[in-house]
Computed example of a mutant assay.
Amino acid sequence: MSDSPEKDGAAMTATLDTADAPPAARRPRWWKLLLRDRVATAAAVVLLLVVLATTLGRVLIGDLDTRQNLRATNTPPFSLDHGWEFILGSDALGRSVLARLIVAGGTTLSVAVPAVLVSLVVGGAVGMWAGYHRGWRENVSMRIADIILSFPSLLLAVVVLYIFSPSAANIVAVLAIARIPVYLRTARAESAELRGRLFVDAARTFGTRPSAVIVRHIAPVVAPTLLTVATVDFCFVMLAESSLSFLGIGIQPPDVSWGLMVAQGRQYLQTAWWTAVFPGVAIVITTVSATLLAAWFRLATDPAQRWRLALPRGRRSASPLPEVTK
């Protein structure tokens, strides 16, 4: 028994407050929160299947995506008359649509993922550096971002790829440069607000170098916001690559991407609709899944909103904020 009644009362109040706290206050693991949301779980499973199919599937199919079978040209889908590889039909040259979807998905992801990562790392690092130091660093960074944003991303990519040879490396470079301002402005705003917080002031008081303050104290707080932006931006970059390939200035044959498959199959819409529809469906499913997962990730990384994920989905929008025990 403690000699101080005040301490006993404070300890009892803290215990009751912890017991009455909402489920989100106990910080459940992220995968448990994900499994509570059926839509987000389905989106994550779809994206995982796309990644596995485009990485491991290419090893399993070999050269099936380029092998021609002139006896099976424009084979309709959902038929096993010519083997399992033609389950989604074939194109005008007798090539398996399923195999080409797998290879094209790998090409599309190999362009979209590096472009997002490069713009995320460069834009995030420069934005945190500019927002923390302020002054001329912030002014120069923001003016460069304004110059890049003054050109529409897709139009800039069209002009650059028209001048230079359209290749996967050039597409990654131009899309990454065009999307850097998105992360730069977001990171700059976040770090400019964080530099006035007490924990940052305490780190500076103890003589921590600015680079160490940015890496150890500011970057972990800004990272969830940047990752949420990157998830949504992945959809834009993938659609941009598909649009460029559809216009003929993106991925070039013999390589193939989903956008190029749509472009090659549009002239066969009346006779072989599946050659253009299936890659279009793959683009839609992947982008919608990434958007839904980004919405879930935004809630999961927000301490003020994370508790909503512990509720049934139908009660999230109507539930009031949890009361704070004083």
Rank of each mutant, 00 (worst) to 15 (best):
S2Q: 09
D3P: 12
S4W: 09
P5C: 06
D8L: 12
G9E: 14
A19N: 04
P23H: 11
R26N: 15
R36S: 13
D37A: 12
R38F: 12
A40Q: 07
A43S: 15
V45N: 04
L49I: 14
V51F: 15
L52N: 06
A53W: 04
A53T: 10
T54I: 05
T54H: 02
T55V: 11
L56Q: 10
V59C: 03
D63M: 06
L64D: 15
L64Y: 09
T66W: 12
T66S: 11
R67T: 12
N69R: 07
R71K: 07
R71P: 00
R71M: 14
T73I: 15
T73R: 13
N74K: 11
N74E: 09
L80V: 10
W84T: 02
S90Q: 04
A92I: 00
A92P: 06
A92Q: 12
L93P: 08
R95Y: 13
T108A: 14
A112Q: 01
V116C: 11
L120P: 15
G124N: 13
A125C: 15
A125G: 14
V126F: 15
M128L: 14
H133F: 14
H133L: 12
H133D: 12
R134Y: 05
N139T: 11
V140H: 03
V140W: 12
S141F: 11
R143N: 02
I144P: 03
D146V: 02
I147V: 10
S150N: 03
F151Y: 07
P152Q: 05
L155P: 07
A157S: 11
A157W: 00
V160F: 14
I163F: 15
S167V: 01
A169Y: 13
N170G: 10
L175I: 08
I180K: 00
P181H: 10
Y183K: 08
L184R: 04
A187S: 07
A192L: 11
E193I: 00
E193L: 08
E193P: 01
L198M: 07
L198P: 02
F199K: 06
V200P: 12
D201G: 08
R204Y: 12
R204V: 10
G207W: 02
R209T: 13
P210K: 02
I214A: 05
V215T: 04
R216L: 11
R216I: 03
A219D: 03
P220G: 09
L226F: 10
L227F: 14
T228D: 04
A230R: 02
L239N: 07
S243D: 00
L244I: 04
L244M: 07
L244W: 07
I249A: 06
I249H: 02
I251P: 01
V262E: 05
A263P: 08
Q264T: 04
Q264E: 11
Q267G: 07
Y268A: 08
L269V: 10
W273G: 00
P279F: 09
G280H: 05
A282L: 01
T287V: 13
V288K: 00
V288A: 09
S289F: 06
A294I: 04
A295M: 08
F297I: 11
F297A: 11
F297P: 01
R298G: 03
L299F: 11
L299D: 13
P303F: 02
R306E: 11
L309M: 10
A310C: 15
L321H: 00
E323G: 07
